[in-house]
């Protein structure tokens, strides 16, 4: 058991994300920033993983279905020691294993993603595999809200409920924006929770930037059906001029913007360090 200051950890992760994208001159900053607390809650407060043995058979599995938000994932894996933190400097460089979407060459990454709408299907297969193998491993899949228009998501939703996969938790980073604008303008998703319930899932709605709510939901008791955590988030969370701006989906900050963003994240880190609120991890 270890306790982590979630807010401080999220600020640290956001700083790593900002550095990676600024130095690479490439990346998907908006969705990485919105998912920071979700990733921290999963990796520091929920999942059983072993950075020294990434393929430990009894580990819990995580799939980043919104694979473009890979920066936040790599930052967390590096912070946990799955690979050296300095390697984050190679993000998107020629020959680096840290390519712009999740890649299994990186220790700790379970599956290659990048094309949206695959992750829940893969996770549903993993969860079914865990059941058939009588394994206690749990499976977590993080999806973006924009990707929910992919039909395969709903094929997977149907199958997961059919096979009563209560070892499967899907999380939606509900930041409300996709590359072209608000999700509801691009293609209406609401009433989203009702849709998942109708597909046979147990739905928990949380604030996606609240550790207590996230960790409680992610560790909820099994209910004989798959669990959807609908996490309301802010795209670009933590950097004032990036928040809630659709065009920052894959924007790259200028040097001036980088320095401002860095200062904002430093201030958040310091504030969180003073607060000292912890979350528990097993």
């Amino acid at each position: 058991m270890c306790a982590v200051n979630g807010s401080r950890k999220a600020a640290e992760i956001r700083k790593l994300v900002l550095d990676m994208i600024f130095h690479a001159g490439s990346g998907h900053i908006g969705g990485s920033l919105s998912a920071a607390e979700i990733l921290v809650s999963l990796y520091y407060g929920t999942m059983r993983v072993d950075p020294t043995n990434p393929t430990w058979p009894e580990r819990d599995r995580f799939i980043l279905s919104k694979g473009h938000s890979v920066e936040v994932y790599y930052a967390v894996l590096a912070d946990l020691g799955f690979f050296p933190r300095e390697e984050l400097d190679t993000f998107c460089q020629f020959g680096s294993r840290l390519i712009g979407h999740t890649n299994t060459k990186v220790p700790g990454v379970e599956h290659n993603t990048g094309s949206l709408g695959h992750g829940l299907s893969v996770g549903m297969g993993m969860a079914l595999g865990a059941k058939r193998a009588h394994s206690l491993s749990r499976v977590f899949v993080l999806m973006g809200d924009g990707e929910l228009t992919e039909g395969s998501v709903w094929e997977a939703a149907m199958a997961a409920a059919h096979y009563k996969l209560d070892n499967l938790t899907a999380i939606i980073d509900r930041n409300g924006l996709q590359i072209s604008g608000p999700t509801e303008n691009v293609m209406q998703l609401e009433p989203l929770a009702d849709k998942w319930r109708a597909f046979g899932w147990h739905v928990t709605e949380v604030s996606g930037h609240d550790f207590d709510e996230l960790v409680a939901a992610l560790n909820a008791e099994k209910l004989g059906k798959p669990h959807l955590v609908l996490a309301k988030t802010t795209k670009g969370k933590g950097i004032s001029f990036i928040e809630n701006q659709a065009h920052w989906h894959h924007g790259v900050p200028s040097e001036e913007q980088y320095l401002q963003a860095k200062a904002e994240l430093e201030a958040q880190w310091e504030e969180a360090s003073g607060v000292g609120a912890g979350i528990r991890s097993n």
Binding site: H111, H118, S152, A159
Partner: peptide
């Protein structure tokens, strides 16, 4: 689509 992706997931458990 789900068929093929789910199959890839099953390989994670051997």
């Amino acid at each position: 689509q789900n068929l093929v992706s789910a199959a890839s997931g099953l390989t994670s458990f051997g």
